[in-house]
Design a protein around this nucleic acid. Structure first.
Length: 287
DNA sequence: ACTATTTCCTGGATGC
DNA sequence: TGCATCCAGGAAATAG
């Protein structure tokens, strides 16, 4: 499942491969469409757009788009008076949900089942959105800057991080997954960060000490950085924009290791369900 | 303002 | 072998 390190890997790959390319046409193929903006608006915004850059925000992939030259929309009531050679900016936002993939392919590569969108690029390649479980979403933004929820885990400072959680009665695991507080952390990295910090996932955020928050802060940043370094975790479906898996699943210490010995103390790893999500921890190392 | 629960979706695993 | 059931989980919607 794509979380921050996987989305970062995909965004970096895309940035490397499609920056400067131009989207010539768009096909939106499935019903119901996995769209958060109307299909015509997405098609209209993407077509003839130049991809100026690609980056990540939380679990969202953000394409910065530019439209050069002639006005492309008739229904824009008031434009700034400098009408000539103006650059129109927009953003294309992709959320991959559970099983979404964004792939750069050759046009004659087999069309995978559950391909919901295809953008043809001027370079001759295609950018394809594939998502079997259909939790992924596409949308476009014009006129404002996309802002996805809470703080970026790798940018936030310790003081702000601690303030996000202090006083909350919810289990720390749930709080870490709350994208309105911190964006980009999902089930795998929440469990891995809590293990490294020695905190049980069920611990109420309000009972965690400052010293423990500090440990959690550094543990989370460390595990996210290591995972990015490894190209993310491929547990089920995840592959990067080139179709390649990551390797961080081999460095998981608790996630997916129920019943297996803790790598520190050999105590069997436990799995419990918190807020409907499986949560893995070592009952001896985590308090 | 918070928190907890339900819902969406399909492929793979499991059980009889 | 076949069919039904369960499970995975991000985040929006709903309920309390």
């Amino acid at each position: 499942m794509p979380e921050l390190p996987e989305v970062e890997t995909i965004a970096r790959g895309l940035a490397q491969r499609v920056t400067g390319d131009v989207i010539e046409s768009v096909w939106l193929g499935s019903k119901p469409e996995p769209l958060k903006s109307p299909a015509h608006l997405i098609a209209e915004t993407l077509e003839n757009a130049r991809i100026a850059s690609v980056h990540r925000q939380g679990k969202h992939i953000v394409f910065e788009l530019e439209h050069d030259g002639a006005p492309r929309r008739k229904s824009r009531s008031k434009r700034p008076k400098t009408k000539t050679a103006e650059t129109d900016r927009a953003q294309w936002i992709v959320h991959l949900g559970m099983t979404g993939q964004l792939l750069v392919t050759s046009p004659d590569a087999d069309l995978a089942k559950h391909t919901h969108a295809v953008a043809k690029l001027a370079s001759g390649r295609e950018l394809r959105f594939v998502d079997p479980r259909r939790f992924g979403r596409l949308c476009v933004i014009t006129g404002e800057q996309f802002e996805a929820g809470g703080a970026e885990p790798l940018d936030v400072d310790l003081e702000t991080f601690t303030r996000l959680f202090r006083g909350r009665k919810t289990p720390i695991k749930s709080a870490l997954l709350n994208q309105k507080l911190l964006r980009g952390v999902g089930n795998i990295y929440a469990d891995e960060a809590l293990f490294r910090a020695g905190i049980r996932p069920r611990r109420r955020a309000s009972t965690i000490t400052r010293a423990q928050f500090e440990k959690l802060y550094f543990s989370l940043q460390q595990v996210l950085k290591e995972a990015i370094e490894a190209g993310g975790s491929s547990v089920n479906d995840y592959v990067d924009s080139n179709g390649d898996p990551g390797s961080f699943q081999f460095q998981h210490r608790v996630y997916g290791r129920e019943g297996e010995p803790c790598l520190v103390c050999r105590t069997p790893v436990k799995r419990v369900v918190i807020a409907g999500r499986s949560s893995h921890y070592c009952p001896k190392c985590q308090k």
